[in-house]
């Protein structure tokens, strides 16, 4: 394994183009180093992008969006005032990822590129309608996160491509969001089920769901189109296909989806009302 530390995005892309699937991008390393230890990946080249100096700044706040660069860590993101103001649920989710020490390394974009079905930040990013910018030999393209996640550990980012930014559109005025999850213990843990709800001003709902399918899922509806909130929740969670694994049984996951979805919706509604008040 060779280590490279390109200084520019072009140099990084050049390395990826040269080595293809033999190259692995290193941002925070919290997923990659575990994979290296277990030899589930054996790259010829590691491309450390933390010294690339022509990326956009790690986190850029504009009126319309928050643009998160590929090296911004969970810890940094959760500290930023504007992120905390606009995206409570994202902060809640980011603060469940590993420990303080892990969050000082783990990058939000890297975590998304790892495409774990249970990634705790994926549901909220999906529900917020995040998009990613993918740079490659043919230039840049923008992909909605829902189209980005293809399956377990598979994304729309090709081996010669690099996700250079993640865009979080500014929530419409009168929105509220919340994150909920179930774990096996109270301290640092992987989510058995994780849920994010984003409730818009017109009672439009986006529900992101983690660890209940081969990839993180999102479903959308309008509360008014259903007889009750419970019916809306049923509609939203219908797409989930949870499985049995060492962390939980599928029936428990399915039941928790409903409980957490309801709780997340209630909290999001409360936050929306509080903001309005």
């Amino acid at each position: 394994m060779r280590y490279t530390s390109p200084r520019s995005a072009d140099e990084a892309l050049g390395l990826l183009a040269e080595h293809g699937a033999g190259a692995k991008v290193l941002a925070g390393g919290t997923d990659l180093l575990v994979a290296l230890r277990h030899r589930t990946v054996e790259p010829a080249v590691v491309v450390d992008i933390k010294r690339v100096d022509d990326f956009d700044e790690p986190v850029r706040v504009t009126d319309d969006a928050i643009v998160v660069g590929p090296t911004a860590t969970m810890g940094r993101l959760a500290e930023l005032e504007e992120v905390r103001r606009r995206h409570v649920a994202l902060v809640e989710a980011a603060l469940t990822v590993g420990s303080v020490a892990i969050r000082n390394r783990a990058s939000l974009v890297g975590n998304s590129c790892n495409a774990s079905p249970g990634a705790d930040t994926a549901p909220v990013l999906l529900a917020l309608g995040a998009t990613v910018t993918i740079a490659g030999p043919a230039g840049e393209r923008t992909v909605g996160l829902d189209d980005f996640f293809l399956g377990p550990r598979r994304t729309a980012c090709g081996p010669d491509e690099l996700v250079t930014a993640l865009h979080l559109p500014r929530p419409r005025p009168g929105s509220g969001s919340a994150f909920q999850r179930i774990t096996r213990r109270r301290g640092v843990d992987l989510g058995t089920v994780s849920i994010a709800a984003v409730l818009g001003p017109d009672d439009d709902v986006a529900l992101g769901m983690g660890a209940v399918g081969p990839r993180p899922l999102v479903a959308r509806t309008r509360l008014g189109d259903h007889e009750s909130t419970a019916a809306a929740v049923e509609h939203l969670v219908a797409a989930a296909t949870p499985i049995d694994d060492v962390r939980a049984g599928s029936d428990y996951r399915r039941a928790m989806l409903r409980v957490l979805a309801r709780r997340a919706l209630d909290t999001a509604a409360r936050r929306r009302d509080e903001e309005a008040a």
């Binding site: 096996r184 213990r185 109270r186 301290g187 640092v188 843990d189 992987l190 060492v246 962390r247």
Partner: peptide
């Protein structure tokens, strides 16, 4: 410890064998 039908431990290691933390 979760042992599979093949006798292999399914939750080998710190990630899926959970012991109490400060928050527990």
């Amino acid at each position: 410890l979760l042992v599979g039908e093949d006798g292999v431990i399914r939750n080998l290691g710190a990630l899926d064998y959970r012991i109490p933390t400060f928050k527990d």
